[in-house]
Amino acid sequence: MELLNKWPKYYKKDVISHYCPGCGHGIVHRLVAEVLEELDLGRKAYLVCPAGCAVLAYHYFDFDVIESAHGRGTAIATGAKRARPELFVISYQGDGDLSAIGTAETIHSANRGENICVIFINNAVYGMTGGQMAPTSVIGQSTMTSPEGRNPEVDGYPLHITDVVASFPGVAYAERTSVATPAGIRKTRKAIRQAFETQVEGLGYSIVEVLSPCPTNWKMDPVTACRWVEEEMVKEYKPGVLTDKREEKRKEKG
């Protein structure tokens, strides 16, 4: 009998996950490793991991990984990809990392149409530092720094950064998915594949925003957390393809 669900080639064995039970990071890690294997990209992969819960991603990924300062992932990715275009470059970032402290780097790497892939874990909170409000926290969401719920009057509104960059001509592919259901996980895997193929084809910037549970900081059990993604988060952040300019880009390239 052949096992259909094999251990991904580019995922380290014999390491114990530091992620909390029910955390979305681990799921997305695995999808990234699987798609790299599927497209045979692991040998030249270069992934930038963020300051955030995924800071130790190199414990799991069995390809080349570098850590970034908080928010600077796409700048490092830009430098590496420009210096060695033959590398397959991924920037893996959280919502605080990508849409708060790293906003400028996000906007400008996208606007330059850097030929890199961004995996954006939106868990509506600063996970690593203990559950403070993120730019992505939804209205009314209570966090360590919005204890009475996010109030737009003082805290502003949830930031839809992926929608912003999706409108840029340099962004070839942008999709939002969730990993709170098996169907969502399958969609996420597909989206990651689309994004990776975009870079392989040299079409420019691609980003996959993944709505991802953080049971620990949401103070929920894993099941409730998944339900919260599907019932609350998706109201603010509608899953779907936000832009797909790959056909245009192919024509531009000739």
């Binding site: 970034s68 830009t78 210096a83 400028a104």
Partner: peptide, 26 residues
């Protein structure tokens, strides 16, 4: 080689990190 006008000095030095990490004189 590569010339890139970055969006800030912060971005520039992080691009330097990226290029340095793959072995390029930067």
């Amino acid at each position: 080689g590569v010339f890139l006008q970055s969006e800030s000095e912060t971005a520039a030095i992080n691009m330097v990190i990226g290029a340095a990490s793959v072995g390029t004189r930067v």
